[in-house]
C-alpha cells in the first residue's frame, strides 16, 4: 500500500493575523514495507504532514494518495482509510479513551461491527504484538499503566484496526530510558516481523537513527533532505544549521575525524562507532 504526496501545501489559521504556512509544496513517495523517519525541529511541519497521511487533514492544495485513493475524493471511505493508516499520537492520554486496556484496544474493531470472536482475537493478537500479556492486561485500568505501557497500549489500539501503514508521532517524548528502549524494540519487531510500513516522526535524531532506513528532513514546511540514514548523517553541517541536534555518537565521531582519525563519515550507531574507533586505534598502533 504505497503512499504518495503531490505538491501538498497547508496553512494554519488562514485569514487570521496568526497565519502560519506549515507545509509549502511537499512531494513524497513511500513504498510498501519501508521504515521512514521524518525529522525536523519543532514547527517544521512534520506532524502536519503526518496527519495528512490518515486524512485528519484534507489537502486544500495538492494531493495525498493512499494506495491510489485520493483523500480529497468524496468517494474515498475515510473511516476505512484511517484503519489502514494507523496513527499513534505523541501523548497517549489523548489516545486512550476507555477505562480498561481491553476496552480501549477493542475500540477500533468494535467500530467496524466485527463479530465478537474476531474482536477478541484481534485484541489478543495486538496486545501480544506490543508485548503486553493478554490475561494480565486485558482488565487493567488505563491509569494504572506506566508511561511505556501506556504507549504500548496506544499502539495496540491502533494495531487492532489492522493497519498496513503505521504513523508514530514523537512517541518516545517524556519516556525514561528503559521505557524508550522498550518501545523502540516493539516498533523494530513490528516492522521486521509484520512488514508494516512504518513512518516514525520525531525531533530526536537519536531515536530515528536507530530504526529508520530512510530519513526525510523537514525545515520550515519543506523537505530539504530525503535520503538513506547514513547519507543524511554525513551531512552534519547542514543539519546543525537548521537547528537539529545530531546524535551524540555522530558528534563525537565527527570531532575525532576532524582531529585526523581515520573514521567513516555519518556514523550514528554506537556499536559501529565503537568498532570503527577501535579499528582506527589498532591501525595507529600497527603503524607505530
Amino acid at each position: 500500500m504505497p503512499l504518495e504526496v503531490i505538491d501538498l501545501c497547508h496553512s494554519y489559521k488562514e485569514g487570521t493575523p496568526f497565519v502560519h504556512e506549515a507545509l509549502q509544496g511537499i512531494n513524497l513517495y513511500i513504498d510498501d514495507g519501508e521504515f521512514v523517519g521524518i525529522i525536523g525541529p519543532t514547527r517544521s511541519g512534520k506532524s502536519t504532514l503526518a496527519q495528512h497521511f490518515n486524512a485528519l487533514y484534507i489537502p486544500r492544495r495538492g494531493k495525498v494518495l493512499i494506495d491510489g485513493n485520493d483523500t480529497k475524493d468524496k468517494n474515498t471511505d475515510l473511516v476505512r482509510l484511517r484503519h489502514r493508516v494507523g496513527y499513534v499520537f505523541q501523548n497517549p492520554d489523548y489516545q486512550l479513551f476507555a477505562s480498561t486496556v481491553g476496552e480501549d484496544v477493542s475500540f477500533g474493531p468494535r467500530r467496524q461491527n466485527l463479530p465478537p470472536e474476531e474482536i477478541k482475537a484481534r485484541v489478543r493478537e495486538s496486545l501480544e504484538l506490543v508485548g503486553l500479556d493478554y490475561e494480565a492486561f486485558f482488565k487493567r485500568d488505563i491509569y494504572a499503566l506506566s508511561g511505556g505501557q501506556k504507549r504500548r497500549a496506544a499502539i495496540a489500539g491502533v494495531l487492532a484496526c489492522k493497519p498496513r501503514i503505521l504513523v508514530l508521532d514523537d512517541i518516545t517524548a517524556g519516556l525514561d530510558p528503559a521505557g524508550r528502549e522498550e518501545i523502540l524494540a516493539v516498533i523494530a519487531r513490528l516492522h521486521s516481523e509484520n512488514q508494516i510500513t512504518t513512518i516514525f516522526v520525531s525531533s530526536s535524531m537519536d531515536d530515528v537513527s536507530v530504526l529508520a532506513e530512510r530519513i526525510i528532513v523537514m525545515h520550515e514546511g519543506r523537505i530539504i533532505i530525503d535520503d538513506t540514514t547514513r547519507a543524511v548523517f554525513s551531512r552534519a553541517d547542514e543539519l546543525e544549521e537548521i537547528g537539529l541536534e545530531l546524535p551524540e555518537v555522530t558528534v563525537l565521531v565527527e570531532k575525532l575525524r576532524k582531529l585526523g582519525y581515520k573514521l567513516p563519515p555519518g556514523l550514528f550507531n554506537i556499536e559501529e562507532a565503537q568498532a570503527a574507533i577501535a579499528m582506527a586505534l589498532d591501525q595507529g598502533r600497527a603503524e607505530q
Partner: peptide, 19 residues
C-alpha cells in the same frame, strides 16, 4: 486545543466526526 487533540485521536480510530 484539548478538544482538537481528542477528536483527532478518535477520528484516527474510526469515529467519523467529519461525516
Amino acid at each position: 486545543e484539548e478538544l482538537e487533540k481528542i477528536v483527532k485521536a478518535q477520528m484516527a480510530r474510526g469515529v467519523a466526526f467529519d461525516r
